[in-house]
Design a protein around this nucleic acid. Structure first.
Lengths: 292, 292
DNA sequence: ATCACTTACGGGTGACGTAAAAATC
DNA sequence: GATTTTTACGTCACCCGTAAGTGAT
């Protein structure tokens, strides 16, 4: 067997063309490489280099060897990467969501029922991406706004959300009970970039130029304070007390301004997250009771 | 990067289950392995083992690591094997033949036009096998008794051979001009096992029980001397003076008791073997002139 | 007491760097 | 003379073996 350090040095030479450049890349001295290349030849029992005019270069055997050496290094790096990833996955839970609200709402639940685990959350604008990344184990849990049909997935309804538009009381349409997206056309509206699939919904109904998209919640809050511009809100946010003085919030009546969230895991993991799903079911029941 | 010796030791432990058994397999002491396993864990920065009741075993991460470590070792062995094989191929020419005679006839040519190369010859009973092994580079040259149709192959007709039956002068059919295989049925005949495709021909026409197959030419020659049993000969062998006193050789008239040999290489190698093909063409021309 | 692994210590190989030489342009 | 590789030499790291220790069956 050939030790890895020899192959690393050999591949560096194959890439760099001279021992000097390779030695700089590897942060070793050049005689070290000269010696190593000899040792590699000796251990393989085969000529790997042309030595001509104090110029070292790979011969045909050497080129072949370099290809295979590269594969060994890749396999070695693979070992390291996969072991690290697996070890990490033992201490980490990855959660993908189509929307920020359910994540925020469930975070305390995650933290109390997954003690000691690092919770990693990610927003996505597409349920399909979330699902495929759930199946390929990149995510352990996902929160969708549609119910997937796959017997390998376990799904639990969570809660509903409808988006609102928050306007100055003096705004022409502030007196209405509710509005359609249609009626918001031509009005410049503030919104955050981190709203998951809602971004798609808004873009579908409104023109790009009307959406004043902010990269951070801080920037958004500041502009809401400092300006009279409308911004998007939701029934859930209002419930949590997110109302700005001097403004009214009107529900948006369109069908797709409303979402029902589902929490989903792979069926094999169902037992692992039972406590979490119990909490999620609690939300759904409470919601149903409120409707009744 | 993780050095190979650590992975070898780790895989040995994964196979053997205890450090002691692994240490015996690797011919090192057991504390060496204990130390190495710790070092491997440290270098990966990850727990790989359960340590309980002075019993060491792989945990889930360890099992994953063992799988990937095995791949690294295989890649490493692949490097060694391929480099050796390629280096060998630079000094060796592999020739496959359907029959021993053309090989013997061409050996001096090979030796003089492939100076310094080790010439490796092999007999095969099937042109198909020879061809596929020529294409997959196991052979560099093959000698067939049929003309292959493949534009990636370069072919040159070599010479003809017809097999004869050599009998005691007193044998009932020794007076004939020629015989068919049919007429040899029921007669026990000596032959060598190393006759390539001729073995198939003989088996197709004669019963297994009648063929007294010898594993070496020495054994065959001795039995020819010591007995009055018939044996197979050929026009080419007779030309070379291989006649036994007190015997006559009759040609076998069947169509497939005659063969035309072709020397074949991959088209890409045609130039490399031009001198050899010139000699081969010389044989073919000489043969044609003799017929005219 | 035995088995299996760990810890402690000492030795020898060998991988590395520095310095200098050799060879080619 | 500049660039690149090779040789020589000393040093330090580290891999190994021996021997003793720990813990469980």
């Amino acid at each position: 067997m050939i030790e890895i350090y020899l192959l690393e040095q050999f591949c560096a030479f194959a890439r760099c063309g001279t021992l000097l450049k390779a030695s700089e890349e590897l942060h070793v001295t050049q005689p070290t490489l000269s010696r190593s290349m000899k040792k590699l030849e000796q251990e393989l029992g085969v000529q790997l280099f042309h030595r001509k005019n104090s110029k070292l270069s790979l011969n045909e055997t050497g080129k072949l060897a370099a290809e295979f050496a590269e594969k060994v290094l890749i396999a070695n790096q693979d070992l390291i990467d996969h072991v690290h990833a697996y070890d990490r996955s033992l201490r980490t839970i990855s959660i993908g969501s189509c929307s920020p609200f359910p994540i925020n709402e469930l975070m305390p639940t995650f933290q109390s029922y997954l003690p000691g685990k690092t919770i990693l959350t990610e927003l996505s604008d597409s349920d399909e991406k979330l699902l495929s990344n759930l199946i390929n184990r990149q995510y352990d849990l996902v929160i969708l706004h549609s119910l997937p049909e796959d017997k390998n997935l376990f799904c639990q309804r969570f809660m509903d959300e409808r988006i609102y538009i928050s306007l100055e009381e003096s705004h022409p349409i502030a007196g209405k009970e509710s509005v359609f997206f249609e009626e918001l056309r031509g009005i410049r509206i503030l919104m955050s970039v981190n709203v998951g699939f809602w971004m798609d919904i808004c873009r579908r109904h409104l023109s790009e130029a009307d959406l004043l998209i902010q990269n951070s919640m801080d920037a958004l809050d500041e502009l809401v304070e400092a300006s009279s511009l409308p911004f998007f809100n939701s029934d859930r946010m209002i419930e949590l007390g997110y109302q700005v003085p001097g403004r009214v919030s009107l529900p948006i009546s369109d069908e797709d301004a409303h979402a029902t969230y589902w929490v989903v895991c792979r069926t094999e993991d169902q037992a692992k997250y039972r406590s979490i799903f119990n909490v999620v079911r609690g939300y759904a029941i409470k919601h149903d009771e409120r409707l009744a």
